[in-house]
Design a protein around this nucleic acid. Structure first.
Lengths: 343, 343
DNA sequence: AGAGGGCGATGAAACGTTTCGAAAATGATG
DNA sequence: CATCATTTTCGAAACGTTTCATCGCCCTCT
């Protein structure tokens, strides 16, 4: 900018005023400056600007895994939304690790991001502290956190799983295996509650041998399913509380020589692009990923636009049970499944 | 830092020296400063530091679509690699749009990213100009670009498709439909060449009616497949040059009342996590995503470590044909497929 | 003609660091 | 004890912007 100012024989203040439109500059100076900008190939240095202005027009986004299709989609939507608004987004993947998450959030705050969207991991205490003394707006995504009072957008997980399990019960299933992720994040807690309540509402017992825990990865789903399938009285259906784990479930079923839905019905949380292309077409709980991402972006953009003091807003969206053909009616002849699906 | 210096009754220079370890400071001052840092809760402002140092420890990464599983995986790997190295990554999705890409790259350069990894889109001319006057290292990912002489890591696309098509030919297929992405990026060009050469090597004609173009999305694959399937003499196999489009292919096959692999064989570029779980298990060309991401990261990290003047390095990795059961031997009884697969 | 007002342009301070040369303190040496 | 060498500390400039108070200028009004 200094060079531009010299070339145009004006002060840097005038150049700045022209670029930002913060003051009117006379036609002849405008002309000279614009020419100088072109000649020199001047590009404004956003870092210097950020330092002075105290804003970077950059936000931080942390998710556990970008390869989980739910987060892939949400990240994509959020990125688009902020791109439209002229913001850059710094992406971090915490890999479900608490320390990694803390480091990354600190990294982001050091870089003076203007806001944060966090799909948190692990214990909320440290997150709370970080969020408290970071004086940037934070919106929690997918996973809320007791004690951290801030904007959030989550799914009605309990209801969604309740509906899914009820669907299985209505099909005649009585022993329904349930594979949960680690219990320290809210959705897993709520989903489990939905499972329990659905069973109870149907007067069925909640048997602990039917509930397995995993750490969100395919291999965890595989192991959990192996355990469920080797039970003396094995379940007739399995519900997996997240998407990567259900891949493990399907592989375990295959490896053990069973097939879905003939021998065992399967449903899971989170839809994915291939769900209705291949066989079996998995029955899933689809989250409104587009809405979730957009709402999260909107909440944050609203804060960034200056609405700092509004009380925390918590949006709860509804999941949708996508019924396909991976769950069969118990007792019904096999042909009935195909029927009900193609309908 | 000023506050810390005052609280510890030292100069800011000393505080800086201590924090960065650029000079030895006496035990008593060290003690006082460290205490002051804790008391005040001081966090170094990375923006101010960047301004002074001329480096942000941040890189820019642009990909066409993050929802394409190939890019999802690559982004994930790259993010991890830079995270380990203490770099942040700014992610941009260009949505296959040239203008968007230009805007985003400019945005990234304004923010003084230290380097750029670009899975480019469209015409390379503008990219070349941008890259030239950005004086940061750039590595091209997946898609190279004539005239842009810089580090790159790509797949041997031609060979990979050659192998896949040859496989289909060996199975007895003679009329093989090919669905390409837009032709202005190198992989699509190379893949098409692989297709042509495989046919020619087998003495088969290259028929233009069997080649369709799409814009990388599911819907494009759907439309292209519909056209192929309504040909008077329809192909017995279809190869889709990218992953999202093959979903459209499968849906079109289903909607038209055919099935895969019984009526039509299908193979595609890019593997995905579900490929060997559901039926049909798609035969795919798997890219070594982990290696691609890591190599790209390493190339850039090496430049960032100071190795600026080495000549451009171009890494070419090999794809791997993952043979599953979505392609059937022509003329063989149907049972043979299942056989060959479960083996 | 002098005062007041609006407009355009500017100088300089500030944002929070790093760094360099110089100053001060310390220790060693003759 | 004076001198020198070495270590430790510091002041101030610089990075590239934005912004605010000020200044000159021209116009209009009394």
């Amino acid at each position: 900018m200094l060079h531009v100012a010299e070339a145009a024989r004006v002060s840097v203040a005038t150049v700045s005023a022209l670029i930002n439109g913060t003051a009117t500059v006379s036609p002849q100076l405008r002309q000279r400056i614009e020419q100088a900008i072109i000649d020199i190939g001047y590009k404004r240095n956003a870092i210097a600007r950020s330092l002075k202005m105290g804003t970077t027009r950059t936000i931080g986004l942390t998710v556990p895994h970008i390869t989980n299709p739910f987060f892939t989609d949400v990240v994509s939507v959020i990125q688009q939304a902020f791109d439209r608004a002229g913001y850059a987004v710094m992406l971090c993947c915490t890999d479900e690790d608490l320390n990694t998450q803390d480091d990354q959030i600190r990294l982001l705050l050091d870089r003076m991001v203007d806001g944060l969207i966090v799909a948190r991991v692990g214990d909320g205490a440290i997150l709370k502290r970080i969020v408290d003394d970071a004086n940037v707006p934070v919106v929690l995504l997918d996973r809320v956190c007791e004690g951290v009072d801030t904007d959030a957008v989550v799914l009605d997980n309990q209801r969604a799983v309740f509906d899914a399990i009820t669907y299985l019960i209505d099909l005649g299933h009585r022993r329904i295996g349930y594979i949960s992720g680690s219990f320290d994040i809210s959705p897993m807690h709520d989903r489990m509650t939905g499972y329990r309540e659905a069973l109870q509402a149907a007067g069925l017992p909640v048997e602990s041998e039917l509930v397995r825990f995993g750490n969100f990865h395919e291999v965890d789903g595989y192991n959990a399913t192996m355990q469920l399938l080797s039970l003396h009285d094995r379940p007739s259906a399995i519900f997996s509380a997240n998407n990567p784990m259900v891949i493990g479930t399907m592989k375990a079923i295959r490896d053990i020589g069973l097939s879905c839905p003939e021998d065992i019905s399967v449903a899971c949380f989170d839809d994915f692009p291939w769900s209705d292309v291949f066989q079996p077409q998995l029955t899933t709980v689809a989250q409104p990923v587009k809405a979730i991402g957009e709402q999260a972006a909107n909440l944050l953009l609203d804060r960034l636009a200056g609405n700092r003091d509004a009380p925390p807003r918590k949006l709860t969206l509804k999941g949708r049970l996508m019924i396909r053909n991976s769950c069969r009616p118990l007792g019904a002849p096999l042909g009935a499944i195909v029927q009900s699906v193609s309908a």
